[in-house]
Write a protein that binds this DNA or RNA. Structure first.
Lengths: 347, 347
DNA sequence: AACTCGATATGAAGCGCTTCACTGTCGCGC
DNA sequence: GCGCGACAGTGAAGCGCTTCATATCGAGTT
């Protein structure tokens, strides 16, 4: 008899705090497990008094539903998986925005990060193992198209670049437009020698590169086109800054790969005694934390993390409702934020 | 008969890609589900040929074990939950280091981030719902002691400060020692007017504050003690930089709350024409990405994310093996990294 | 008085997996 | 030639939950 009651405690171990289960709550409230289930999910079917009793019992026992069991029983996880890269501050912004957006449509969020020794397919694989119903991939390597196929039939949204797989949605900003706005702004101020430090193989950089070229041509500045190979970090900006200063004459404006790159550039220039924006104007990209800072006050192109997140979640949910939807590409408008690092050229 | 075989497709919906389950793999390989389970977990008990056949069947079907079902059946999740704050770059470092450390001891990692509208107890609660066997809390608010109690009997490790709850372990660096090293270094260089910009209510800042005071006293510099209230971000550094420049005379050295704060300070000083380290030496705290950068080259106090992560995982695992362990406090040695922002005072 | 009905409650089945106890089948030693 | 252990493989139970079909009952309806 009591073997049945205490099946787990034979192993000589201390009483081994058993998990509080629904049955415990049911017993304490003197009702069936089914009813506990109903009450805890706010489903109708229980009387007010009973409901109260159940809630109290749950509270007293510190009951917490087991999400694994829930999902198994329900046949769905009610979770959206998000793959991110911890090195990218913008990813952090996106994830922060995805949480509320997913909650809005009653989904949990599972985060899986790419880390050294934990490549994209591993990170995304973990999400699939947890039976996430949809995947949102914040890619950092624009070449890694394999990951977006990993999901197979699971609705997948790629953030940061166009998806290349049939049936995979994507959300990103119109890089070209942002770059064009930046170039237009500089040209309007009177700049002609506008250099671009590119983002190497980072997300969006090839688009930005060609948009820069196109924008320059539109202003009949084809001869002034100059792309300095870079990356999306401070070091690239510093390197570019030193390169430029080692040359005969400085350009009057630089369009950096992103804010971090712009920061590095500014640092290098100011250390070298170059006045920004007096002698050189600088435009960043991202409108990250950095750029707001009072003394930095970087002119930059803003990508709106909140709308991106909302759109991505919406894509996922729509496709969840109708898997046959054709792949969508949602392109958001970036916005040039003019601050203090751009001005008329001196000459 | 065939009702049994296709129980789900009656609902008029399109064939509804069924999840590939172990039974599918078993059928295709012509063995029992049990055997598939064994093979997939590399357990002995299957012949080499069969094993091969099963693996191939799984491969062909794109089978992926359902971790919820696994955990339900096993009675354990084999996962460690990590609560982090996406705004803290150092948390990112820690999480990156926790992944491999956990893998080492055969645990998965579940990440749950604090975000606007998703407070600590919610983030940690989600982890508990997923039945994480242990919790690692990367706290950003040193006052939020309630979260560490949330886990109840679940092994909990707090990173970043001392735990205040019985039976909760903690891992952090010896703030005092790091600060002392920094002050010693500055004093050795000949500085006497050493100011500290504190980190407000950020993690570790009250410890650093009092360690600064103590270190100054040890050098008989009690009269020079000066703490400027700040925060752990660039803005605080900028504000402090402007404040200092508005005064009659500058101190010769500043110990900043952290690297970001130091960055802001440097920015403000250099914009104001103050030479670093010529006129003023600066020491940061964290040894984040930023400080390595060639042109920044910040002297700073390193906290070793990798060891912290390893220790935290070890604490969790140890307590998992023996819940009755007394609460441990693991204090790691910080290390002063001398770079280019500190030098002898000019005078 | 027999009935229907909504509100409240229950039991049993089953989600996909692991585990445990078990069945065959060999090959080997005595 | 028989028993025995090792190996290969199986079936059934059960993890904690949801869901479906069903039971119970007092109040209205006819």
């Amino acid at each position: 008899m009591d073997e049945k009651l205490v099946p787990k405690e034979d192993a000589g171990r201390p009483p081994a705090r058993q998990r509080v289960t629904m049955a415990d709550v049911a017993a304490r409230a003197g009702v069936s497990r089914t009813l506990v289930s109903l009450v805890l999910r706010n489903q109708p079917g229980a009387g007010a008094a009973t409901r109260e009793r159940v809630l109290q019992a749950a509270e007293e026992l510190g009951y917490r539903p087991d999400s694994a069991a829930q999902m198994l029983a329900r046949g769905r996880s009610a979770a959206i998986g998000v793959m991110m890269n911890l090195d990218q501050p913008f990813h952090a912004e996106l994830v922060k925005a995805i949480y509320p957006a997913a909650e809005e449509v009653d989904y949990d969020v599972l985060v899986s990060a790419v880390a050294p020794g934990r490549e994209e397919h591993k990170a995304a694989g973990a999400l699939l193992g947890h039976r996430c119903e949809a995947l949102i991939l914040l890619v950092s390597d624009p070449e890694s198209h394999a990951t977006e196929r990993l999901g197979g039939a699971v609705p997948t949204v790629v953030i940061g670049r166009k998806a290349t797989t049939e049936g995979v949605d994507s959300v990103h900003t119109a890089e070209a437009k942002g770059v064009r706005q930046a170039v237009d702004h500089l040209v309007e101020l009177g700049h002609r020698r506008i250099v671009h430090i590119d983002g190497g193989k980072g997300p969006g950089s090839s688009e930005r590169r060609s948009a820069y070229r196109a924008a320059m041509r539109r202003h009949h500045l084809a001869e002034e086109i100059r792309v300095i190979p870079g990356a999306q970090d401070e070091d690239a900006g510093i390197a570019a800054g030193m390169l430029l200063q080692s040359e005969d004459s400085l350009p009057t404006a630089v369009l950096a790969a992103n804010d971090r790159c712009a920061m590095g550039l500014m640092h290098a220039l100011r250390s070298g005694g170059v006045d920004v924006p007096g002698e050189m104007s600088i435009v960043g990209y991202d409108d990250s934390h950095l750029s707001h800072l009072s003394h930095i006050n970087l002119t930059t192109v803003r990508q709106d993390a909140i709308s991106i997140a909302e759109q991505a979640v919406r894509c996922a949910v729509d496709r969840l409702a109708n898997a046959a939807l054709p792949g969508r590409e949602i392109v958001l408008e970036p916005k040039l934020v003019v601050r203090a690092t751009t001005a008329r050229p001196r000459s």
